[in-house]
Design a protein around this nucleic acid. Structure first.
Length: 324
DNA sequence: ATGGTTTTTACTGCGTC
DNA sequence: GACGCGGTAAAAACCAT
């Protein structure tokens, strides 16, 4: 059991950092007051004396798989910060702390402090050394800003970062703005993650206009060979529903509408956003909740006319599919 | 560039509160 | 009278060719 060492190591670290009250509860067996030990292999914490299982089904924070030799152990253990594509160096470069403390937490002498200050300066210069790195750094900041403005989750930012990184690798940047490519990456990532934002929404928070965005987006998709299937209208539904404070019932209804519409072949060629907006409106009508076409058109940034046209088709389709 | 399709803009009439 | 809604025609935008 070579990896049991690792487990106890991480465990000890954790308990040290935990607040005292929690640690105390774990240390003693509630039955006999004896010492408890954690048995990581069975994901249990048991009392050494009476054998009572204090806690079970714990999360194993140890290495992912069994390791058969030292090299594998290095590879598979979960020690170290996770790498992330959201930082331009994937979080792998050296960071020099800002608190002038040594490894034991003692303050540094003023000579040492000056030295560390110089090191910090240089380290920072090296980290963002060449143009590509600086480029990336700016783009990722931009992606992050837009993603939070649009309320997109972290995994989308990750994907966007990966896409941008690839675009950079393939020398797709020259002749295109960093902004444009960053925005396109985010747009593509959002769609791939099934949480699409419309071009309108994206360009609202981006510094590039819609035309440039669509141009670069197409280019990126083509050059990178990214598979982005047409957005599914259903993906827009939850957001519209919550923006309009409608019920779950309505949301379910809207999905049903879209499903039967798909079977009738109404979808093809129509804008997914329009379809989604219409479905939400129609569903609200059917569940007797009050929303105006105008309300829906605003949150969906689609014209009322389109909603009207679509929702008629939607209702027709659902009638012929499942006559109620 | 062009033609076909979809979306938008703008306007009008109808019914209701 | 304001508002929500439905319809229409013409303009604009979009897409594949």
């Amino acid at each position: 059991m070579t990896d049991s060492n690792l487990r106890t190591y991480t465990r000890e670290n954790e308990t040290e950092e935990e607040t005292t009250s929690q640690a105390d509860e774990r240390e003693q067996c509630p039955e006999c007051g004896g010492r408890v030990i954690s048995d990581a292999e069975h994901a249990e914490t048991v009392c050494e004396d009476c054998g009572l299982v204090v806690e079970e089904d714990e999360i194993d924070r140890g290495p992912e798989w069994r390791a058969f030799d030292a090299a594998e152990k290095d590879e598979k253990s979960r020690v170290g910060a996770p790498t992330t594509n959201m930082m331009h160096d994937q979080g792998l470069s050296t960071n020099i702390g800002w608190q002038d403390k040594d490894a034991y937490g003692k303050s540094l002498s003023s000579r040492q402090r000056q030295k560390m200050q110089r090191l910090r300066t240089w380290n920072e210069r090296f980290r963002t050394r060449d143009s590509k790195e600086r480029n990336l750094k700016q783009a990722l900041g931009e992606i992050d800003r837009m993603a939070s403005a649009l309320g997109l989750p972290e995994n989308v930012r990750e994907t966007a970062s990966v896409i941008y990184r690839r675009a950079l690798e393939e020398d797709l940047l020259p002749g295109r703005s960093i902004e444009g490519v960053a925005t396109s990456s985010l747009y593509a990532a959002a769609r791939q993650a099934g949480t699409p934002r419309s071009l309108d929404e994206i360009s609202a928070v981006s510094r590039v206009d819609k035309m440039e965005l669509t141009r670069t987006y197409r280019y990126i998709i083509r050059e990178l060979g990214l598979e982005v299937q047409p957005a599914d209208p259903e993906n827009y539904v939850p957001r519209f529903v919550s923006d309009l404070d409608l019920s779950d019932e309505t949301e379910r209804m809207a999905r049903d509408l879209l499903d039967s519409a798909r079977e009738e072949g109404v979808h093809s060629g129509k804008s997914p956003v329009g379809l989604a907006a219409a479905a939400v409106y129609a569903a609200a009508l059917l569940t007797n909740e009050k929303v105006t076409q105008n309300d829906v058109s605003e949150v969906a940034s689609i014209s009322e006319v389109t909603i009207r046209n679509r929702y008629k088709e939607l209702l027709e389709a659902s009638d012929s599919a499942a006559p109620a």
